[in-house]
Design a protein around this nucleic acid. Structure first.
Length: 420
RNA sequence: GGAAGCGUGCCGGAGCGGCCGAACGGAACAGUCUUGAAAACUGUCGUAGUUAAUAGCUACCGUGGGUUCAAAUCCCACCGCUUCCUCCA
């Protein structure tokens, strides 16, 4: 949620952000009014409660004769307090309802507009060119016997698959490479729960408009997470963390589950868009003033991984209208996928500033010992989807695939995967 | 799955209707002493809201309800933890 102090001091900044996102601007004025109403009602309640507390104290020390009158007076006060409390609670509820609708204030300078209005920050590497007809990852997976989609569908339905043999090992190798890179940069590895309670799912902001994207187990009232970000963000919920020695960095590994409810018919071929995959996610808790630098750091780690996998990619600065509600800025990196002759998203890194942490109540102490809301950032370091780009980019005429050098140590030195 | 017990501040641990935002001990921080440190002594020492205010006031003793003039204390539900039995790996 947004900072109430910002709403009071500089509502125009929030309005400008709403404009850039293409969101309703008038909601800001509604929020200001609801805030004023709430504060007025709260004062009223608190004054009455103070009166009641003082009166109740008198009863204890009063003589037997005086008591009945004092208690009678207290009863009248109690009714008034109860009424005032109900009004104050209602005022707070309507303020909350408005405030929670306002999405994070975007960072100044990011592109305005929608999904197609991103700016390309850089393009790295050369797009793979072949002097033969390149295969797509489905054909390669079949030929090499490393991705078995047919049996995945037989066992679990569409958008499921088996990674087999070198395919399974390749994914684990990639994750291990990513974990090593993360460890070198002070990320603590975490294997996270993938079933979480409703409060955590809601607290991390995933139960809003994307609720139908999420698997839910009614018998146990638990949700399956679509990313370890949920658990990583919930990890320090309601805590005052210590940031005096720098950011807290976590690398969360988990299987991710997505219903892909809104994407029927899209990317139905292969393992580009699936219901279940694995992901290593970076997550940083940091002082707000350092968040923008950390965002660049996360991007640099992602690029290091992409380069280690010898992929051609570009980095885009996502437009305001295409940001998630918690993000103030988002960098995606997209790898070149030869079979599609286009770039496909492999990583996504968001700076959530204090928006997510405020909702989750994650704070730290500043130099003066005062508690402040922390900033949170996340970014992808590796996912199953990367296999698509790796296989297609490094394929050879006979259908074999060259393993990028950085991955070989994790594959027993194997340099090439060949058809049987 | 059955039974019992328990959830209080950074930690341990009292309190079991009014004098409790909470005794006491430890940790931490500041100071005195000391060449320095330790020890000892003194002081500070939860979070949040409101407010010009580190003044006052308000809220919070697992969470949510209820009883009462008054709840950490009584009642109900829920969540979590511990121990024992059972079961399973």
């Amino acid at each position: 949620m947004i900072d109430l102090n910002l709403l009071r001091d500089n509502p125009d900044a929030i309005k400008a952000s709403q404009r850039a996102r293409g969101n309703d601007e008038s909601i800001v004025d509604q929020a200001i009014e609801a805030d004023a109403t709430w504060r007025r009602c709260l004062q009223e309640f608190e004054n009455l409660r103070a009166e009641q507390n003082a009166a109740a104290k008198l009863v204890g020390s009063a003589s037997k004769e005086d008591r009945p009158a004092l208690i009678a007076a207290g009863q009248v006060l109690a009714d008034k307090v109860k009424a005032a409390l109900e009004i104050a609670n209602a005022a707070q509820a309507s303020l909350d309802a408005i405030i929670w609708k306002i999405e994070n204030v975007v960072i100044e300078g990011i592109p305005a507009g929608g999904e197609e209005n991103f700016t390309v920050i850089k393009e790295v590497g050369t797009k793979a060119k072949f002097d033969f007809e390149p295969r797509d990852h489905v054909a390669l997976g079949e030929l090499l016997d490393i991705i078995d989609i047919e049996r995945g569908v037989k066992v679990s339905g569409s958008r499921f698959y088996f990674l087999k043999g070198w395919g399974a090992r390749l994914e684990i190798a990639m994750m291990n490479l990513a974990l090593d890179l993360a460890a070198k940069n002070n990320f603590t590895a975490l294997i996270t729960p993938t079933l979480v309670r409703p409060e955590v799912m809601a607290g991390t902001g995933f139960l809003g408009e994307h609720a139908d994207e999420i698997y839910y187990l009614p018998a146990d009232d638990l949700y399956l997470t679509g990313t370890s970000e949920v658990a990583l963000a919930g990890y320090h919920r309601d805590e005052i963390i210590d940031l005096s020695d720098g950011p807290l960095r976590y690398a969360g590994w988990s299987t991710c589950y997505r219903r892909e409810a809104g994407s029927a018919g899209r990317d139905t071929r292969g393992i580009l868009r699936v219901h279940q995959f694995n992901k290593l996610e970076m997550f940083s808790y940091i002082k707000p003033e350092d968040a923008e630098q950390e965002h660049l750091n996360l991007l640099a780690f992602e690029e290091a991984m992409l380069q280690a996998c010898e992929l051609s990619y570009r980095v885009i600065d996502t437009a305001a209208g295409d940001l998630g509600s918690s993000a103030a800025r988002k960098y995606d990196s997209e790898a070149w996928v030869p079979s599609q002759q286009t770039y496909r998203e492999l990583t996504s890194s968001s700076n959530c500033t204090t928006y997510q942490a405020r909702r989750l109540n994650v704070r730290y102490r500043d130099e003066n010992g005062k508690t402040q809301t922390a900033a949170t950032l996340n970014g992808t370091l590796a996912t199953t989807r990367w296999l698509v780009a790796i296989l297609e980019t490094h394929q050879q005429a006979d259908g074999s695939v060259r393993i990028p050098a950085a991955l070989r140590p994790y594959l027993g030195g194997t340099e090439v995967i060949s058809p049987k």
